[in-house]
Design a protein around this nucleic acid. Structure first.
Length: 276
DNA sequence: TTGTGTTTTATTGCCTCC
DNA sequence: GGAGGCAATAAAACACAA
């Protein structure tokens, strides 16, 4: 505290001395005004409901910093649940009802909002953390599946090459242009059928000029679909600029909602992470 | 009882809005 | 320029282990 100090004097328990620094600014003036108000008024706890606490607080002099009674806090909490912002009229009403100064009510709401925000950040952190761990787990599963498929491709390629060497199957033999027309057509048709057979066999093996199902760094599923899952960016993940509003809920509401929806639908998560 | 960590009350400075 | 909000901070009050 650099512009005003409360000194607690044990010899006169409960007394508070305010030392102003002559700050001419508005805030300084406001503080002095508040202290003046305080010094003119009776102690914080003065409503009939607080009489039960008189025994405890009786011996304490007025200006000692005191905690609000459970009843006061209860009323303030109820009011905060209704609306966490405090309009002047409600502030006055609450202050009168609870026997507090309006400034105290305002300060309580201010601090209460700060506490709420801290808790909210903690909740959001936990949600993000669990979301991240879930996505990481899915990512690991995908990597394993990818490796498995790659080794399958290699294995089948080797088998095919062995067959080619043995002359059992000739893939990609082009029709001899010297043959008579109909024979050339038959040869072309055979070539075509053979190639399609291989492409549709699931082995993914084609000749050197054809499309290669190798790990090029792109998706194995170029049409954007795998097991019925479209590889589109996850909805709800958007930049800060989209929504920085403090709407009384999570700081990342859409992201969590989308993540949760994926869980509920039993869908794999996180294409936007894996494929982006 | 005492040291220490946490919570609550209150102040201050800065910022935004009207 | 005043009012009110927020972040940072101080300090009293409180909780609790040793």
């Amino acid at each position: 505290m650099d512009s005003g100090q409360f000194f607690f004097d044990p010899s006169c328990y409960g007394n508070m001395l305010f030392i102003g620094n002559g700050d001419p600014t508005f805030r300084g003036a406001r503080s002095l005004l508040n202290m003046e108000e305080t010094s003119k008024r009776r102690p914080f706890f003065s409503s009939p409901d607080e009489l039960i606490d008189e025994e405890y607080y009786d011996e304490q002099l007025p200006e000692k910093k005191r905690r609000l009674t459970p009843e006061q806090v209860h009323h303030l909490e109820k009011s905060f649940e209704t609306e966490n912002k405090l309009e002047p009229e409600r502030k006055t009403q609450l202050a009168n009802k609870l026997g507090l100064q309006p400034r105290q009510v305002a300060v309580w709401f201010q601090n209460r909002r700060a506490r709420w925000k801290t808790k909210q950040l903690e909740r959001d952190y936990d949600l993000l953390k669990s979301s991240y761990e879930s996505l990481l787990s899915d990512y690991d599963s995908m990597i394993k599946e990818k490796e498995k498929l790659k080794s399958e491709v290699v294995s089948l390629t080797e088998k095919l090459q062995a067959n080619e060497v043995a002359g059992v199957v000739i893939v990609g033999q082009k029709p001899d242009p010297q043959l008579p027309g109909n024979e050339a057509e038959i040869g072309a048709a055979q070539f075509s059928v053979k190639a399609e057979d291989h492409l549709s066999s699931g082995s993914g093996v084609v000749d050197d000029d054809g499309p290669q199902l190798v790990d090029s760094g792109d998706s194995y599923f170029p049409d954007g679909d795998y097991h019925g899952c479209s590889m589109v960016p996850m909805e709800g993940i958007h930049s800060e600029e989209d929504d920085g509003s403090d709407d009384g809920h999570s700081y990342f509401p859409n992201a969590f909602a989308a993540e949760q929806q994926h869980h509920e639908e039993g869908e794999p998560l996180g294409w936007w992470v894996i494929w982006s």
